[in-house]
Design a protein around this nucleic acid. Sequence first.
DNA 1: TGAAAGCATGAACAAGTGCTCATATATTCA
DNA 2: TGAATATATGAGCACTTGTTCATGCTTTCA
Lengths: 127, 127
Amino acid sequence: MADNREKDTLELCDVPVIHEDVLARVKAKMPDEDPVYEVAELFKVFGDSTRARIICALNIEEMCVCDLSALLNMTQSAISHQLRLLKVSRIVKSRKQGRVVYYSLDDSHIGQIFAMAFDHVMEEQEG
Amino acid sequence: MADNREKDTLELCDVPVIHEDVLARVKAKMPDEDPVYEVAELFKVFGDSTRARIICALNIEEMCVCDLSALLNMTQSAISHQLRLLKVSRIVKSRKQGRVVYYSLDDSHIGQIFAMAFDHVMEEQEG
DNA sequence: TGAAAGCATGAACAAGTGCTCATATATTCA
DNA sequence: TGAATATATGAGCACTTGTTCATGCTTTCA
């Protein structure tokens, strides 16, 4: 990140393009950058087994932290940390009643996306 | 995975359970462990922006490695490494023609799952 | 009011990940 | 056959991530 001398032609990545027509078409049809990054961020949150199990549980019904801990056989702290991430990502929402906090899925899309992913891995099994 | 002596009461995680009825219901309805882990693995692969962009591109049409490199402005090596992972995960397939290798999506589910995720992040935007 | 219950959070550390660099392999063509 | 092209891959490194541990906050109840 310091020495840029002798690099008048500073293409970061000067790979040759073989199919200019293909490139042009794909460039035209590619979705905008930002949504793609957001989709990747969403999948990144889904892509941890603890969080995936939490989502599967909350897709069945609302649960409090300690019940989730018992269900998944993990410490309250670990679950709580993950729930925080899921909440920041707007995947779950919470309501507090006394000293108990109940979590549930924030959006019906979430369950649908998981359902499709399940279908996919099930078919992979057979075929 | 070796030493289990002196662990007669081996609750790994003895959190109290508040709602036994909820726990019983969710336990009964929870999907099997293995598919959940596989779904998480699938999402993990989706959850990187480079791979997400590759998938978006290949969802439009088949492409070779160097065109992908040019499109995404990344080195051929970086793209090739990611394509390897995508192929092992059965998300893309490849066909070789001369010294050019063309990649495409291996399954129509993939595009559908991405489409749903896009819908989700778009609605998040609006509120 | 003080103790207990339920949950949240900061620090720290091991494990995992994505890129770069160098190099290997495979194919084409002169 | 030898050079050039297209792609693959192993090693290394900076960076990220998920858990644990200790502790703090909030609410309830005796």
